[in-house]
């Protein structure tokens, strides 16, 4: 048996896909909140939004942020879906199979990334309808690659939390004290330069800040940092959270 087992990874990915497309209500449920954010913040704040880079409409500024938000929520939950599997017993079925933990982590990540990126791309469509101007095809393709990185980063985070938790009780804690701060500090809704100095430091250690900034650069050309720096920092965070997530998952008990 190999540490890296493509067949098993495919099997785990396929399961996530079947589940994703079977639960239509979940697809709609996961697309609706970012859509509302985009629709109402994009129109309602358009006049008030100050200090967004000159010459950029607020909707253009907001759309990459909302994609980042979609990826953040969807991916963290995908990482934490280990908890659901534990709750419903399916985790044992996976763990007793002759498949390495690394392949299990990769399979789950592949499934989670695909779902999150699909959602991220779907949310672009109403965005374009609302006036988001995409810079070009290269930017679009690059942004999909960035979405994969952002998604994998937070799947690692979700997996790490799920491996340390025994049931769903800590879930709302993670939601309120991890996901929301990461989202609000990332500059998805407003430039982090608007934040007071001490809070801004928190923004700079938030991986999503760089993800959103790079997406902005690729999609609408409104980045505050060089895209290459964003991407390198994001890739570093991604490698780190995936490694931690995989390690904690490896160490966790099945029962």
């Amino acid at each position: 048996m190999r540490a890296f087992d493509p067949y098993a990874i495919y099997s785990l990915w396929l399961r996530e896909m079947i589940r994703f497309f079977r639960l239509k209500s979940r697809v709609v449920g996961s697309i609706a909140p970012p859509f509302f954010f985009l629709a109402f913040l994009g129109t309602g704040f358009s006049g008030m939004a100050s200090r967004v880079p000159a010459g950029v409409d607020y909707i253009n500024y907001l759309a990459p942020g909302i994609i980042g938000m979609t990826l953040l929520f969807s991916s963290t939950f995908a990482g934490m879906s280990v908890l659901w599997d534990r709750e419903f017993g399916f985790l044992r079925e996976i763990m007793v199979a002759p498949v390495t933990r690394l392949s299990i982590v990769l399979g789950r990540t592949a499934g989670g990334v695909t779902q999150a990126v699909l959602q991220g791309i779907i949310i672009l469509i109403p965005g374009i309808a609302m006036g988001v101007k995409i810079k070009g095809l290269t930017g679009l393709i690059l942004s999909v690659a960035l979405m994969v990185l952002i998604s994998a980063t937070f799947i690692g985070v979700g997996l790490a939390f799920a491996s340390r938790m025994k049931d769903m009780s800590g879930f709302s804690l993670i939601m309120n004290f991890m996901i929301f701060p990461v989202f609000l500090l990332s500059g998805a809704l407003f430039p982090v330069q608007n934040l007071p100095e001490p809070v801004r430091i928190l923004s700079y250690i938030d991986p999503l800040t760089y993800g959103v900034d790079a997406l902005r650069g690729c999609l609408v050309g409104a980045n505050s940092f060089p895209i290459i720096i964003d991407t390198l920092l994001l890739a570093g965070c991604c490698a780190a959270t995936m490694a931690i997530g995989a390690y904690l998952f490896e160490m966790s008990d099945v029962d």
């Binding site: 399961r15 589940r19 639960l23 419903f88 017993g89 399916f90 044992r92 079925e93």
Partner: peptide, 15 residues
């Protein structure tokens, strides 16, 4: 080389 039927349910209900 083993198969296991666990005491508690371990199937995916959505499949």
């Amino acid at each position: 080389c083993i198969g296991v039927v666990f005491q508690d349910p371990s199937v995916d209900g959505k499949l």
